[in-house]
Simulated scan of single mutants.
Amino acid sequence: MFDTMTLTKATAGVCSTFLVFLLGHWAADVLYSTDAHGEQSYVIEVASAEAATEVEEVSFEELMASADVAKGAKVFKKCAACHKLEDGVNATGPSLYDVVGRTQGTEDGFGYSGALAGRDGSWTAEELDAFIAKPSAYASGTSMSFSGLKKQKDRVNLIAYLDSLDD
């Protein structure tokens, strides 16, 4: 049952498998070695970070002047789940009717979090832009869970739309 020939065949099979793996390893080293190929035949040059073209800064007033109210209405769909546009109609968030120019934290019938209730000043276009960009950074501790709008063009269009609602 267990004779010398069976043991020889099993040993030969293990050694052959080991030999195939060693030859495969050697072939992979030869094919994929980075030292064996020498220098690169050509170099692709890329512009350095210092030589990158600078984007010219556009003032906030120019952005507001070029804002698109129709695009702002589309952006408002992200806000519509929590905010209403009717005067005095609050939902999860306060009514946004006549919000541009309104004193912060003063919408009748809405319970503001302490972070916004204690703020002074009014909702100017610049203040709204800063708030909509990232509410948690503008008013630390606010209960508004919205992460914000990253694109300034979207924020400007939204502010122009909100400002157009109250004539």
Rank of each mutant, 00 (worst) to 15 (best):
M1D: 13
M1F: 07
F2G: 08
F2N: 10
D3P: 05
D3M: 10
T4Y: 11
M5C: 03
L7F: 11
L7N: 06
T8C: 08
K9A: 08
K9T: 10
K9G: 04
T11W: 04
V14G: 00
V14S: 02
C15Q: 06
T17L: 14
L19P: 01
V20M: 13
F21L: 05
L22Y: 06
G24L: 08
G24C: 07
W26D: 14
W26L: 14
A27L: 15
D29Q: 09
V30K: 15
Y32F: 15
Y32N: 13
S33L: 09
T34A: 11
D35I: 15
H37F: 13
H37T: 12
E39H: 07
S41Y: 04
S41H: 06
I44C: 07
E45S: 14
S48V: 12
S48M: 08
A49E: 14
A51N: 11
A52G: 12
A52F: 14
E56F: 03
E56Y: 06
E57K: 15
E57L: 08
V58Q: 12
S59K: 09
F60Y: 15
F60H: 13
E61T: 10
E61K: 13
L63R: 13
M64G: 04
M64P: 01
A65W: 12
A67V: 01
A67F: 03
D68N: 12
V69R: 02
V69E: 05
A70S: 10
A70H: 10
K71P: 00
G72E: 08
A73T: 07
V75Q: 02
K78C: 09
K78Q: 14
C79T: 07
H83S: 07
K84H: 09
K84E: 07
K84N: 15
L85D: 01
E86P: 01
G88H: 10
N90C: 12
T92N: 15
T92G: 15
G93D: 07
P94T: 05
S95G: 13
L96S: 02
Y97T: 00
Y97F: 12
D98Y: 02
D98C: 00
V99P: 00
V100I: 15
R102G: 05
R102D: 04
Q104R: 09
Q104V: 06
G105Q: 05
G109Q: 05
G109N: 11
Y112K: 06
S113F: 11
S113I: 08
G114T: 09
G114N: 07
A115D: 05
A117M: 05
R119N: 06
G121I: 05
W123Y: 11
L128G: 00
L128K: 00
K134M: 05
P135Y: 02
S136W: 00
S136I: 04
A137M: 09
A137F: 06
S140Q: 14
M144W: 03
M144K: 03
M144H: 07
F146I: 13
F146R: 11
F146M: 14
G148C: 09
K151G: 05
Q152A: 05
K153Y: 00
D154A: 07
R155M: 09
R155K: 03
N157H: 03
N157D: 12
L158T: 02
I159G: 01
I159E: 01
I159H: 01
A160C: 05
S164F: 11
S164N: 06
L165H: 01
D166P: 00
D166H: 11
D167E: 12
